[in-house]
Design a protein around this nucleic acid. Structure first.
Lengths: 113, 113
DNA sequence: ATGGTTACTTTCCAAAAGGGAAGTGCTATC
DNA sequence: GATAGCACTTCCCTTTTGGAAAGTAACCAT
């Protein structure tokens, strides 16, 4: 920590916090899927291309811990479990939108014509 | 791939592209540091808290491959190497800003008051 | 001669990510 | 009676990530 870094590293630390909460290639995709409404486990698994059951379970737990989604169990049989995005999770919509636009541009710029 | 998923999964794939290009906890922090102007290797190492030389080297290579930064070598001794953010990299500024704001809110919401 | 700076690379190693496949307990359906 | 769906969990195994520390070649300051 050198002098003169204070303001810069404050923003740096906030960004670091955000990246820690959203780390990995799955969390934002899951949140994006949940933007269109509550979903059950198997629905999310189908909506997020390539994710395995095991990974989905883990990511859902992490998202709950970060208060980005809520888990509701309905006492039916077989039990139904619904995942809903929280207000805090919804506040990522702008970011998701930016990511979507940037991903499009990036594909044009780098991946191919 | 089920019917009815087309539009949704298109956005999903764009977001996936973006996440792939920006994966890991370091790339966005490095880009944030470079937003304030070109920097040399050791300057970036100092600006990004916690990163090691090895990791920095690797991430810089990935960022170059993704056309997000440019590497310029000055033939002095000892050699000076400068990293500059490209226009494509600069197009992430909104995203970085969103991340910064969201990180602040997240800390208040989850990590503690 | 010694030590420092620059921009890395290399080696070793531990931890985490994550895929595949199978299992679980219950129920609804054919 | 067999199969399928639900929401997971468990096991096994490979790959990836990434830290710590040392090395390197060239040069400069003391």
């Amino acid at each position: 920590m050198l002098p003169g870094e204070k303001d810069c590293s404050k923003a740096m630390l906030s960004i670091k916090d955000a990246l820690e909460a959203l780390e990995g290639r799955w969390k934002l995709l899951i949140l994006y899927a949940l933007c269109s409404g509550p979903m059950r486990f198997s629905e999310i698994a189908r909506a997020v291309p390539g994710i395995t059951d095991k990974t989905l379970t883990k990511e859902l737990k992490a998202l709950q811990a970060g208060k980005l989604i809520r888990r509701t169990v309905y006492d039916t049989s077989p039990p139904a479990v619904e995942y809903t995005i929280t207000a805090h999770g919804k506040s990522l919509r702008n970011l998701l939108h930016e990511l979507w636009r940037w991903g499009l541009a990036h594909r044009k710029e780098v991946i191919g014509k």
